[in-house]
């Protein structure tokens, strides 16, 4: 009878099933509730608040009125926004790719069973633990045109000085390199963990089949590291889009506006100029791009897992 009733009334059955589910797992839900509340308070509400602000003209001089999508429309007439958008894209792609490639190379080297391996890992990790603002200030001292150690060295060996921070091209190169220096440690660590968890049998089988070190790496190890690589691209891509401290400390977005990323522009509009509405619109774009990168690589990860 109960079976017949269940067959006739699927909704009721599902409700019962759900009730049973919650009765069984209420403790688990209760335990994660604080985390959900915190996440809601510090992520979801601010996100919707930012979205709302982006639809107003609120600033320090203006209490704010609803202006619809005016801020978003204005963004595409703001050449500083368009420049920042372009540079953010170039910077994100280049820094992420260089970090990933170099990080993989370092991980392969660190994975070799050689004496001093632990020390080498420690040294490679050092940049990662230095505070970004401190790191950028130290780099600034190294890169100063007149008194920086790099240019002093170049002069000593008879070469011309390089305008590391005062020429738009070189400033972009410097900013990217400092970012790579800072983040490659983390990438190496993740790749190292990935390399160490590769199934030994597969690598040994390839070796028995006569595959050389390069073939083993490119044909066996690298494909097996696909998920790790996608995870790194996901996290570093999202991280680089939002990079702030390193660039702010090193060039403050200059010279001119050549190294001003969207994050710097958002900060400038919101916190320096107190254009809360407009700054929020820039922030929403920043969020959108980070989310797009996140969704893309998450989807690729999901596909790889399948």
């Amino acid at each position: 009878m109960a079976q017949a009733e269940s067959a006739l009334s699927p909704t009721r059955s599902r409700t019962r099933h759900e009730a049973g589910f919650f009765a069984k797992y209420w403790m688990a839900y209760l335990l994660v509730l604080p985390a959900i509340i915190v996440r809601f308070a510090y992520t979801i509400i601010p996100l919707f608040r930012t979205l709302w602000l982006s639809l107003t003209n609120m600033s320090i001089t203006n209490p704010g009125e609803f202006v619809g999508l005016r801020n978003y429309a204005m963004l595409f007439q703001d050449e500083l926004f368009i420049n920042s958008l372009g540079w953010t894209f170039v910077y994100t792609v280049s820094a992420t790719l260089i970090e990933t490639a170099l990080g993989l190379a370092f991980a392969v080297l660190l994975n070799q069973k050689l004496r001093g391996q632990s020390t080498a890992i420690f040294i490679v990790m050092l940049p990662w633990v230095i505070a970004p603002m401190l790191a950028s200030n130290v780099w600034k001292l190294l890169l100063y045109d007149s008194t920086g150690i790099f240019n002093q060295t170049l002069t000593m060996v008879g070469l011309d000085r390089i305008p590391w921070l005062s020429d738009p091209f070189w400033a972009r190169v410097s900013v990217t390199l400092v970012s790579v220096w800072k983040n490659v440690a983390w990438v190496s660590l993740i790749f190292l963990a990935g390399l160490r968890s590769l199934p030994k049998e597969v690598l040994e089988a390839a070796e028995v089949d006569g595959a050389g070190p390069f073939t083993r790496f490119f044909r066996v190890s690298l494909p097996l590291l696909q998920s790790t690589t996608l995870l790194i691209l996901l996290l570093r891509g999202m991280g680089e889009i939002q990079t702030f401290e390193q660039i702010y400390g090193l060039t403050m977005g200059g010279p001119g506006t050549s190294t001003r990323t969207l994050a710097l522009l958002a900060y400038e509009r919101f916190f320096t100029e107190f254009r809360y509405g407009y700054g929020s619109a820039v922030n929403m774009w920043l969020f959108l791009f980070a989310a797009l990168v996140g969704f893309y690589y998450s989807w690729k990860l999901y596909q790889a897992a399948r």
């Binding site: 600034k140 100063y144 045109d145 007149s146 305008p163 921070l165 005062s166 060039t251 200059g254």
Partner: peptide
């Protein structure tokens, strides 16, 4: 050229 480009920093 009496001022260096580095004046920006």
């Amino acid at each position: 050229e009496i001022t260096p480009k580095s004046t920006t920093s």
